[in-house]
């Protein structure tokens, strides 16, 4: 006796479902913009601007902009930092830095500033870096990615990353696939921001 096509199809679809389902589905969506900060011939930091989707924005605004005035007072900004940002340290702020291929794990955050633009919640902050650029050049790769996928970052293009004009450093920006291998077949790998720095 042969298995009926409908039942076989049901089984195959069912067995694919865990592959889809084991990974989380996103509840928060972010448009990410980034900027390289140079200080003379050194890389001084990486600035990030996260614009949230309508739903998450509304949830946070309902909590922290109760008067509905469309902006945050310094007290409210501090409350947001405590209640809806600081916990990201447990997630490395969704950031991973690689300097010439070597992971830089110590991520510190400076100048966190929440704001509201066109009804959307915006987080801005800076990750201080202190990188020299040797004559041979330097490659800085940055992954912006929530490993649990509760948060989904929109796909980035090179113009989302701004680079300052500099007399001493030339920077080429590209968005490339992460080099690391997937841990299981079918796993999605995030893109990386790739900054190739050269002395002029």
């Amino acid at each position: 006796m042969k298995i009926s096509p409908v039942r076989a199809l049901a089984l195959v679809l069912l067995s694919m479902q865990p592959v889809l389902a084991i990974s989380a589905h996103p509840h928060v969506f972010i448009d990410c913009r980034a900027a390289l900060i140079l200080d003379g011939d050194k890389v001084a930091g990486f600035h990030l601007v996260w614009t949230f989707d309508e739903m998450f924005s509304q949830m946070i605004l309902a909590d922290y902009d109760r008067a509905g005035k469309g902006s945050f007072s310094p007290t409210e900004a501090e409350e947001i930092r405590k209640g809806a940002f600081n916990n990201l340290r447990n997630y490395h702020y969704f950031l991973a830095f690689y300097v010439d291929g070597i992971p830089d794990k110590a991520i510190a955050i400076r100048d966190f500033r929440p704001s509201i633009h066109d009804g959307r919640l915006v987080y801005e902050f800076t990750v201080p870096l202190a990188l020299t650029v040797p004559p041979s050049g330097r490659e800085l790769r940055v992954t912006v990615y929530d490993d649990t996928y509760y948060t989904a970052f929109d796909k980035m293009v090179p113009r989302d990353v701004s680079v300052p004009d500099s007399d001493s450093i030339a920077t080429a920006v590209s968005i490339e696939k992460t080099k690391a291998k997937a841990t299981w077949p079918g796993q999605w790998m995030p893109d990386q921001i790739v900054l190739r720095l050269k002395r002029k």
């Binding site: 069912l14 067995s15 479902q17 865990p18 592959v19 889809l20 389902a21 084991i22 990974s23 989380a24 589905h25 996103p26 509840h27 928060v28 998450f56 946070i60 209640g83 809806a84 940002f85 916990n87 990201l88 447990n90 997630y91 969704f94 929530d146 490993d147 649990t148 996928y149 509760y150 948060t151 989904a152 997937a182 841990t183 299981w184 079918g186 796993q187 999605w188």
Partner: peptide, 30 residues
């Protein structure tokens, strides 16, 4: 395989790290 599920916490508003069972997304979900 099917049984390993758990709703992940919201990284922004929860306290603590990612769920032990959370794993990277599949291409389908993305």
């Amino acid at each position: 395989a099917g049984i390993a599920w758990a709703e992940s916490p919201n990284p922004f508003t929860s306290s603590g790290g990612p769920s032990a069972l959370s794993s990277p997304p599949s291409r389908g979900i993305v």
